[in-house]
Computed example of a mutant assay.
Amino acid sequence: MYYQLIIKDYIKSRPDIDMKIMLSTGNPNDVNIYLENNPDQMKFFLLDIEFPNSKIKGIDLATKIRKNDLDAKIVFVTTHEELMPMIFERKVEPLDYISKEKGISVIKRKLYTDLDITVERLVKPENTRLKEFSFRIGSKQYNFDIDQINYFESLEHTTNVFLHAVNQNIEFPDTLKAISHKVPYFYRAHKSLLINPNNTQSINKKERKIYFKDGSSCDISRRRLVDFSREHPNLIKK
């Protein structure tokens, strides 16, 4: 609870940065589920080495996080300093390792520093957002105005993606994961869909659909619908 309050205070102190606590839990299985459903989000993890009433250890969870996300920032807060060598053996590469015995004021100071580093390394300033999305098909290059793109759709059993733009669709070789690094402000509406929030017109919760300004639409998963509706309550269709 203390750590969650510290992070909330940090977020309040940085209103210029789009940050939020997505998950706070004592159950490592919840983290596994979150990882599976949010593979492309930029992430900061605060973990303990031990989880009460669970066979899964924090070091195991960190190993899985690092395997799936080379950019994730991982910080351990724990009393088990004797397990530090195991962290290096597993090649987890944590951002920090904070002892609970140092006291809450030291923990807060170190967490603020760790969060500053995370923001500096992961969060792109607003003015660096792409104006154009470019890709190649063979020797030909295509350039699309970001504001004209509604969403990207991955194609099953292929390494191709469909770009759905205003009045135009085009297929090209790429993956949603790679695209999400270029346009991190796009939202993962489904495991196969990456949408442009700036082009959304409304949300139909009953149909579980996102409607865009040009009248087109796409599906959104039940889980993502809850989060997206919470973030954009003004779009909900009554």
Rank of each mutant, 00 (worst) to 15 (best):
L5G: 12
L5A: 13
L5D: 15
D9N: 11
I11N: 04
R14L: 10
P15I: 02
D18I: 02
M19W: 00
N27S: 07
N29E: 15
N29F: 01
N29C: 11
D30C: 03
D30P: 04
V31D: 06
N32L: 13
N32T: 06
I33C: 11
N37S: 10
P39A: 08
M42T: 08
F44S: 06
E50Y: 01
N53K: 14
G58V: 00
A62V: 09
I65P: 04
R66A: 07
R66C: 02
N68F: 09
N68C: 14
D71Y: 08
I74F: 05
V75S: 05
F76Y: 02
V77H: 02
T79M: 13
T79K: 13
T79P: 07
E82Q: 13
M84I: 13
P85E: 05
P85I: 04
I87N: 09
F88V: 13
V92E: 01
K100R: 14
E101Q: 15
K102M: 13
K102H: 09
G103P: 10
I104Q: 08
I104D: 12
S105H: 09
V106I: 08
I107D: 05
I107K: 00
R109C: 00
K110C: 03
K110Y: 07
L111Q: 00
Y112R: 05
T113R: 12
L115Y: 01
L122H: 10
L122P: 03
V123P: 07
K124Q: 15
E126Y: 01
S134W: 08
F135H: 08
F135G: 03
I137F: 00
G138L: 11
Q141R: 13
Q141L: 12
Q148S: 14
Y151F: 04
F152D: 03
E153N: 04
S154W: 02
T158I: 05
T159K: 13
T159S: 12
T159H: 13
V166G: 04
N169R: 15
N169H: 13
K177H: 14
K177V: 07
A178D: 15
I179H: 00
H181T: 15
H181I: 12
R188G: 10
R188K: 14
S192D: 11
L194F: 04
L194H: 00
L194I: 02
P197R: 01
N199Q: 14
T200H: 05
I203G: 04
K205T: 11
F212D: 05
G215N: 06
G215M: 12
S216G: 12
S216D: 12
C218S: 06
I220H: 02
S221W: 09
D227V: 09
F228R: 06
R230S: 15
R230V: 12
P233G: 07
P233S: 04
